[in-house]
Design a protein around this nucleic acid. Structure first.
Lengths: 202, 202
DNA sequence: GTCTATATTAGGATAGAC
DNA sequence: GTCTATCCTAATATAGAC
């Protein structure tokens, strides 16, 4: 593995856990098994190194959207694919959401650049939902609310992990990991129930 | 207004927006219209000043739980009261959730202290849900999932505000604020639909 | 390319006058 | 209690040898 890849791997680990402000160049150097000066040799500044990590991280999230949309004809197909793709990603990178949200709140100008670079297929998803509402497949709901609801149910538990672990599960690790295992289907079913047309209306 | 209150007000504003690491004592002093030395005279260290702000902030959240539980006999009463109480609080303090979550992720040991000091009535809420499930008032759902779902739907949009504003509303402020106005009832109805017993099962 | 040693600066904290 | 001036340390960044 090249030194540059090595640094990027170490930087990703440290930045994701600590965020830009709390991350230390020294810690990244240690993690990569090199020294500080070499970090600067490869990436000049902390800011530039961070930039790389941040946009890579956001791209991973974007791929959950595009990938799930690709092979889905109906909304429920998309929903199931998306929930599981996203949860699979977060399983491997649990710090990802907090990292992204923290940095976007810290530097609000970054969101503009991000929006221009990373085209998330939001309007396609909106259209998919709107069509199913028109066809009477699902209840009348504004696509924006439904999209926000889906993402909230998936992502929030990762951002609030310490609180949930402590205040809801009293630090009981087993209960908590059981909760996580069932979470994907729970979300899918919860949403499907919330948007289905009541049977006795026919 | 006393100098001490003045400082606390300024500190709250700066800490909530910036978080501990990005907050600057200088900025707090400016905001309070005094100088840095006086901050240290009143609160010795940045850490101690922060401590005060943080526990006050968490207490506000706790009160949304306890307050809503107080006068609710059924789950749907609690749900409606809680959603609106919490949203009312976040309307006034939109940075509150990101602040709390960021700090709990930064310093994981803090959660222990917090748990011992601030008794959130979680078991009472769990019991309320479990009872309604037993009585066949709502569908079979694990209380932990339902509680997490409720909080996710309320809180996440505030944490992800920049992303939602940009990627879902294309920076259109009017669309975004219309979304926020309808959000409370949307959440309540979404959850009630997801947990109701289907009519044709009777 | 990689290291050691050093410069620079930002920012929290303190001393001491009033 | 409030200020100005100063200290001190941590952390980013660079110079220069190998």
């Amino acid at each position: 593995m090249s030194t540059e890849e090595n640094i990027l791997l170490a930087a990703r680990k440290v930045f994701l856990q600590k965020g830009f402000m709390s991350a230390r160049m020294q810690e990244i150097a240690d993690e990569a098994g090199i020294n500080k000066a070499l970090l600067h040799y490869y990436f000049r500044t902390k800011e530039k190194l961070f930039e790389q990590i941040f946009s890579d991280a956001f791209q991973l999230i974007k791929q959950s959207f595009t990938g799930s949309l690709l092979n889905s004809l109906t909304f429920s197909e998309f929903l199931r694919a998306f929930v599981h793709a996203y949860l699979h990603l977060l399983d491997q990178m649990p710090y990802l959401p907090q990292f992204i949200l923290q940095e976007l709140n810290r530097d609000s100008s970054r969101i503009i650049t991000l929006f221009e670079q990373q085209k998330v297929p939001m309007s396609a998803i909106k259209k998919l939902i709107a069509t199913e509402v028109e066809n009477g497949e699902i209840i009348a709901i504004k696509p924006e609310h439904l999209i926000v609801n889906i993402i909230s149910l998936i992502v929030f538990p990762f951002v609030a992990r310490p609180i949930i672990k402590t205040f809801i599960f009293n630090q009981n690790i087993e209960d908590y990991s059981r909760f996580n295992e069932g979470r994907g289907e729970e979300i899918v079913q919860f949403i499907l129930r919330a948007i289905r047309i009541p049977k006795n209306m026919i």
